[in-house]
């Protein structure tokens, strides 16, 4: 799982309808894949991702992860042309895979486990 996925996930437990996004992310193991052609730095792709991302959710999450990257308050037209900034985003959104960890709903505290890079968003029968 990468942060682009965390960025679209919310808690969908029965009755949990407010303050359920973004989930609190705890990453216990991660890996930067760079052996693959598809992980190459691609400014055009990153600019496209900037249009799609929920910026506040990303910034807030990254600030809790201690990955040595700090994101600015707001996106701007100048920023998405800035090489250093795009390299940061490349690491955060394209390369870094969260292999093990948890996501916790800030509202109901339901825990969603991440194993082998795959988050389990399934709810139990009494939660749907």
């Amino acid at each position: 799982m990468k942060l682009i996925t965390h960025n679209i996930l919310m808690c969908n437990k029965k009755g949990c309808t407010t303050n359920n996004f973004p989930l609190k992310l705890v990453a216990t193991n991660w890996k930067d894949l760079d052996t693959e052609n598809a992980q190459q730095y691609n400014p055009a792709l990153l600019q496209r991702l900037c249009e799609k991302i929920e910026w506040n959710a990303l910034r807030q999450t990254v600030s809790t992860l201690n990955w040595g990257v700090n994101l600015p308050e707001q996106l701007s037209a100048e920023l998405v042309q800035d090489e250093a900034f795009l390299q940061d985003l490349h690491l955060l959104l394209v390369k870094r895979q969260i292999v093990e960890g948890q996501m916790v709903c800030p509202n109901c505290e339901r825990v969603y486990e991440i194993k082998n890079g795959i988050p389990n968003m399934l709810l139990r029968e009494d939660e749907v």
């Binding site: 682009i4 894949l33 693959e36 598809a38 394209v94 795959i118 988050p119 968003m121 399934l122 709810l123």
Partner: peptide, 11 residues
């Protein structure tokens, strides 16, 4: 050598 997909266990 394709970009890994984003995979979820989800209904």
């Amino acid at each position: 050598q394709l970009r890994r997909p984003e995979i979820l266990v989800m209904d």
